[in-house]
Design a protein around this nucleic acid. Structure first.
Lengths: 229, 229
DNA sequence: TACCGGGCTTGACGCACGTCAAGTGAACCG
DNA sequence: CGGTTCACTTGACGTGCGTCAAGCCCGGTA
């Protein structure tokens, strides 16, 4: 573990209330792995062995059904994912894969379970963390059920931009293929969706996307306060 | 509060670890409301005022966008919902509406927030509760992204039935209209989906549905372990 | 009994998005 | 430099589900 890791971990919602000495004590049970792009951290259906916290790099959580797979969510530095499988001691519902080289803090599941049960502040941190994730998932379900593909893309782009801003360029969390999975469409449809938004002031190549007029785009999606905070 | 309520509350994941005296102390801040069908417990976009726990009856959580609305999840006796909005002191993402007459425990948001921060066992219970909800939401997202409407219906029916069983009749948590919303389709499409499953041994009228051969249905959805536990 | 209303079903048709396939461009490399 | 690969785009076409509009069934009411 590097000296630069601790501040990052500290900032995570999970540890917001945990006292310094407790935190360092907890972390003695953990270790860090440096892994290449494509490395699989956990596989859907297997028993939970570790809690993972991203120190650097990005991770995608994928659902699999037969030959298909769908990206459910992106995670970046400071995020702790699959907490639910670990605390419930249940099989992973998702497969986690590194989207680029990254460093991952590995926290053995039994140790984490025991500590979250024994340490109030850690449990409280987990509540905050899970509450935030619940809200992003609910937002995603609402999007899937109520919005068209183009509207979902718009909503996603807007969520990436600061509120009440002028023209901005946002950085997509993954390539077009991954974006398509996150939005629940095919890469081809995503391409068409971007094309459809071009007249509305959305332009860009690669992972950088310029939103010329966020207010106009927001109006297009509908005034609704749909997205999670 | 009735004498029959306490055992129900006790059984909830939220209070699994909370000591008896602490629990009764917490509940002094709460009150019970008896409400008719259609009563709205909270409205999307408003600030969180209360945590709600269902004592009797059923509740639906709906997402709204303009004129449309979609059912995101059902809740029944013993369930505590919208915990995330309450602990994060954020606006509700969903509207909760009673699907029939019901009795609801109302817990003022500031009191709950304070208690979850101060009481380790309560926080731990919240972690368990949120973990379970996270998993059902993830299951739903995977279903929406990977399965067709007919497959989603099959998966939903199977989730209602005990595992490894012979012919069973399951009870739908709501009328056809609500079921359709939960599955992310229209009532008409739901009707057609039921028609399509009839050759596979799914028959029924109203809320009772007979699954003649669960194994066959399970095979149809795909061997995948898709659903949440 | 006749009348009415609401929930479920069925049919016809359209559209959004998936699928298949070709085309383009940038990065990499012999 | 040309060839290869891979990601993205674009086009043509098919299909699953939404939409609109009847029908059907059943329970409530006079």
């Amino acid at each position: 573990m590097r000296t630069t890791d601790l501040p990052l971990i500290r900032r995570s919602r999970l540890f917001a209330q945990v006292a310094e000495p407790d935190l360092t004590a907890m972390l003695t049970a953990c270790f860090v792995q440096v892994l290449p792009e494509g490395a699989v951290l956990c596989r859907q259906g297997e028993k939970a062995e570790f809690l993972h916290i991203v120190l650097s790099g990005r991770v995608g959580l994928f659902g699999e059904a037969g030959r298909d797979e769908a990206l459910v969510e992106f995670f970046g530095p400071g995020d702790a994912f699959i907490v639910p499988a670990v605390v419930l001691d249940a099989p992973y519902l998702l497969t986690a894969r590194l989207l680029g080289e990254g460093r991952i803090l590995m926290w053995p599941a039994p140790a984490f379970r025991a500590q979250v049960r024994a340490t109030g502040p850690l449990a409280y941190g987990a509540v905050l963390l899970l509450s935030g994730y619940w809200r992003t998932l609910v937002g995603q379900i609402k999007d899937l059920k109520l919005l068209s593909a183009i509207e979902r893309l718009s909503a996603f782009l807007l969520a990436l931009a600061p509120r009440d801003t002028g023209p901005v360029t946002v950085t997509l969390p993954g390539g077009r293929r991954l974006m398509a999975g996150r939005l629940g469409i095919t890469p081809q449809s995503l391409s068409r969706a971007f094309a459809a938004l071009r007249p509305l002031g959305v332009s860009g190549g690669g992972r950088q996307v310029l939103i010329a007029d966020p207010a106009r785009l927001r109006e297009f999606v509908g005034a609704s306060a749909l997205r999670a905070t």
